[in-house]
Simulated scan of single mutants.
Amino acid sequence: MKKEDVPQDLGALGKVTKEVCYATDESGKYTTQLSDGWDIKTTALDTAWHDVEERIAAAKQKVLNNEASPILFFMEKGLMDVQILAGYTGFWQWQVKRHLKPDVFNSLSDKKLQKYAEVFNVSIPDLKTMTVNEE
């Protein structure tokens, strides 16, 4: 892409920051050029975030239907999977999977719940009620 063809469509972060793109200058050499955004990229990101929001809503509904523990909701909200959550908490992956079951979650000790609460940056009561602290 030529330097003058770098997109300058105002994106979601266009008012806050600019993106560095590589382009060719008049002599055909690669150089950097700042871009305010690109409509195609903005649309793709909006679509991806919409999918994330749907997964969070589905997880919340599973918890409300007593099909999963609140850990699932916070995992989706934090863009985590079992492997990542296991790494943060120090639990084995099989333990995290087990803790996703409502009956098992309800019998967890405060010590174990505290590990999850710290990872998700919530209190234990907020963990149990799926209350999110938006900061």
Rank of each mutant, 00 (worst) to 15 (best):
L113N: 04
L45M: 12
W38Q: 06
D81L: 07
P70H: 11
A68C: 03
G87Y: 11
I56N: 04
F120A: 10
Q61D: 00
N66W: 05
F105R: 02
D36F: 14
Q61F: 00
M80T: 07
K77I: 05
F73C: 08
E53A: 15
V52M: 05
G90D: 10
W94A: 09
T43I: 04
T43C: 03
N66V: 07
Y116W: 12
L79T: 08
G87T: 06
E54T: 01
Q83R: 09
D39F: 11
W94F: 15
L72R: 05
V119W: 01
D110T: 12
P70D: 13
D39G: 08
D39E: 13
M75P: 02
W38G: 00
F91C: 07
K60H: 02
Q93D: 12
P70Q: 11
S35W: 07
R55I: 00
T42H: 06
L113V: 04
P102N: 12
A68K: 06
E67K: 12
H50N: 06
M80F: 10
V52S: 13
K111A: 12
L64F: 02
A58W: 00
A86Y: 06
T47V: 08
S107D: 09
W92D: 11
V96G: 02
K101F: 03
N106Y: 13
L45A: 09
K41P: 00
Y116T: 08
E53Y: 00
L113T: 02
W49A: 08
L113F: 05
D36Q: 11
L79Y: 02
K41L: 10
I84Q: 07
K62S: 09
D46C: 08
E67N: 09
K97E: 15
E76Y: 00
T42S: 06
E118L: 13
F120K: 02
Q93T: 13
A59M: 03
I84P: 01
A117R: 00
L64C: 04
D81Y: 05
G78E: 14
D110Q: 13
E76R: 10
D81G: 14
K62C: 05
L113E: 07
L45G: 04
G78I: 10
Q83E: 11
L113W: 01
E53N: 14
P102F: 14
V82G: 01
A44L: 04
W49M: 12
K62I: 01
T89I: 11
K112S: 11
W38H: 06
V63L: 03
Q114N: 13
Q95F: 15
K115G: 07
A57L: 09
L34D: 08
F74D: 00
H50T: 09
R98D: 13
I40P: 01
K101P: 00
E67Y: 05
V63S: 01
S69T: 12
D36M: 10
N106Q: 15
L108F: 14
P102D: 13
S107Y: 02
V104I: 15
